[in-house]
């Protein structure tokens, strides 16, 4: 009753206060926003309440693992029996054959070189994308000028798939390595920028006013209010960016004549080494997932305030 009548006051009042209500709505909306990561309850819980976690999440993980195992069994059966109803499993190696090939790869050193080269490229591309993306995103979120100047480029370039950049990347950049890194970088850049802009633009007006009335300078407001407020969205962008970096990498590594897990996959196709294709694909999937997980875990300390209040 009371909060309602207060809300009424605020709506009736002119612009200065109108944002207050919007802010409240935003905070509730934030939790369910498309790009916002889930609250820490699921990520923080294991270390704190492992007993409870095991009870609630244990059965769910059992289901997840079982689902994967069932798929592998079906695949094995389909391959061994030459399943061919519209989808053809004739030429697809069975998991047992892929597994054997993987063991061979793991005992050699070549496979690790592919992985190392890819990791290096992703690391370089990602770091540049994060630094540049967050800087541009903050600038765009804070300044209408910056947004108006940069946004058209983003709108235009973002839908272009990584593969389409290959010719230009080769023409414009000095080395193969730099072309691949550039393509990977582009993939990671856009989600980081857009999520940062989104987070910065959601800055609560009341909090900015509170900070100003406490004597905070513009720089202090940016550091103490805008950035931490945007952090959930930025972290979501970092995680998405990492995923996109991995799948852009594959496109980039088509260029490479030597190493890289994308090159490995592509080359196996050329050489008709079917088990290796699948090993390459799953390695990219696995590494991408692992890196995304690391980004999320690494960013957790920045969001611990959210985790604690997750239930209130």
């Amino acid at each position: 009753m009371d909060s309602k009548s207060n809300a009424a006051i605020r709506t009736a009042e002119p612009p200065a206060n109108a944002t207050d209500i919007a802010e409240t709505d935003e905070q509730t909306a934030k939790g369910s926003a498309l790009l916002t990561p889930k609250t820490g309850s699921s990520t923080e819980a294991p270390s704190r309440l492992s007993g409870t976690w095991l009870k609630t999440m244990g059965p769910r993980y059992l289901v997840r693992i079982t689902a994967l195992i069932v798929a592998v069994i079906l695949w094995e059966l389909a391959s061994q029996n030459g399943f061919n109803v519209y989808i053809n499993f004739d030429n697809i190696p069975a998991p047992s054959i892929v597994g054997a090939a993987l063991v061979t790869e793991l005992t050699g050193s070549e496979f690790y070189l592919h992985i190392l080269h890819s990791l290096e490229r992703v690391a370089i591309a990602y770091v540049i994308a994060v630094v540049l993306g967050v800087l541009l995103g903050v600038a765009m979120g804070r300044s209408r000028w910056a947004e108006d100047i940069i946004m058209p480029y983003i709108e235009l370039l973002r839908p272009i798939p990584a593969v389409a950049w290959i010719p230009l990347a080769i023409l414009m950049l000095p080395t193969e390595q730099s072309s691949i890194i550039f393509i990977t970088f582009l993939g990671a850049l856009f989600p980081v920028i857009l999520n940062t802009v989104h987070g910065v633009e959601q800055t609560s007006d009341v909090l900015v006013r509170a900070a100003r009335s406490l004597g905070a300078s513009r720089a202090a407001i940016l550091w103490h209010v805008v950035l931490p407020g945007a952090m959930p969205s930025i972290v979501a962008g970092l995680a998405i960016g990492m995923g996109v970096a991995w799948f852009s990498l594959l496109a980039g590594e088509i260029i490479s004549g030597q190493y890289g897990i994308g090159y490995y996959t592509w080359n196996s196709y050329t050489l008709i080494q079917y088990p290796q294709i699948i090993i390459g694909m799953l390695t990219i999937g696995g590494l991408g997932t692992l890196c995304t997980l690391l980004v999320r875990k690494g960013c957790n300390p920045l969001l611990k305030w959210q985790a604690k209040g997750g239930h209130s």
Partner: peptide
């Protein structure tokens, strides 16, 4: 000094 109606504390502090 300002005291606001609600939601004015810095949630990350």
């Amino acid at each position: 000094g300002m005291v606001f109606q609600q939601h004015s504390l810095f949630p990350w502090k």
